[in-house]
């Protein structure tokens, strides 16, 4: 291999967020990498039964990849080794739905950001680990999914303001949440907001402060309000609309 080829080949660690069939036997991969942020790659011949990649290049796999840098948007996968396959997650409908929701959030919120975001990468890996450890456990409940989104918003720089009124800075009597203002608001500033309970506020503060593994359950109404608060904040400030898994937003 000459020097030019060496410089165009690089190693990275990545989670497969989504795959799309392409051509006769290829697959396009949406990756979130530890070193480079969001990347697109093509895996040639991966859908053939004798592909050397086997079943590794599937959504939610955490992989050590060697990519060949291309002139276009898509790099070419030249080698793939499994770091984590998350087999229990993959065998559960609930686990797959939660992992898809998390990967979808990363895909939309960090799309077009070609800089690494290690906190976001570590958060995604940790969440997948928790789902894999117990696909019917706290991580896959509405509370777990909303807590993941909140932490992801924080890692992406869009965490809602929870310590005081996002408009005037007042610190007492926060009764509503405004996505446009980007946080809780006081009664004087509550135009365009929705009612926000003390339980929802507590849930969000605890979700931000605690590790995913120590997440406390919130009541259904509080989790729904927290989910709406994060969704509206991201819509206004990140211009991203995440699907609202309303049916799953039970604590």
């Amino acid at each position: 291999m000459n020097r030019l080829d060496m410089s165009r080949t690089f190693k990275t660690e990545a989670v497969v967020l989504r795959t799309i069939r392409y051509g006769e036997a290829d697959r396009i991969l949406h990756l979130y990498t530890r070193e480079h942020g969001r990347l697109g790659a093509i895996a040639k011949g991966v859908r053939k039964p004798r592909s050397r990649f086997g079943g590794r290049l599937e959504p939610f796999f955490r992989l050590a990849l060697v990519l060949h840098r291309s002139r276009g948007d898509l790099h070419t996968v030249t080698s793939a080794e499994t770091i984590e396959g998350y087999p229990r997650l993959r065998a559960s409908g609930t686990g797959i739905a939660a992992a898809a929701d998390a990967c979808g959030g990363v895909l939309r919120l960090l799309d077009g950001v070609d800089e690494p975001n290690q906190p976001a990468y570590n958060l995604l890996c940790r969440y997948l680990e928790l789902v894999d450890a117990d696909p019917a456990g706290p991580a896959t409940t509405g509370a777990g999914m909303v807590a993941f989104r909140l932490k992801l918003a924080l890692a992406a720089g869009f965490a809602p303001e929870l310590s005081g009124c996002a408009r005037c800075g007042a610190t007492d009597h926060m009764t509503a949440f405004s996505g446009a203002a980007g946080g809780v608001v006081c009664p004087t500033c509550e135009a365009g907001s929705f009612p926000f309970s003390a339980e929802a506020h507590t849930f969000m503060v605890q979700a931000l402060g605690r590790p995913m593994a120590d997440l406390l359950p919130g009541d259904t109404a509080a989790v729904r309000q927290a989910g709406r608060a994060i969704g509206e904040t991201l819509e206004h400030h990140a211009h991203v609309r995440l699907p609202r898994p309303e049916g799953r937003l039970a604590a």
Binding site: P49, R50, G54, G55, T82, G85, P87
Partner: peptide, 13 residues
């Protein structure tokens, strides 16, 4: 897959 070598099989398969 029939005819494949075991040493080249990925761990998932």
């Amino acid at each position: 897959p029939v005819g494949a070598d075991l040493e080249h099989a990925d761990e998932v398969t």
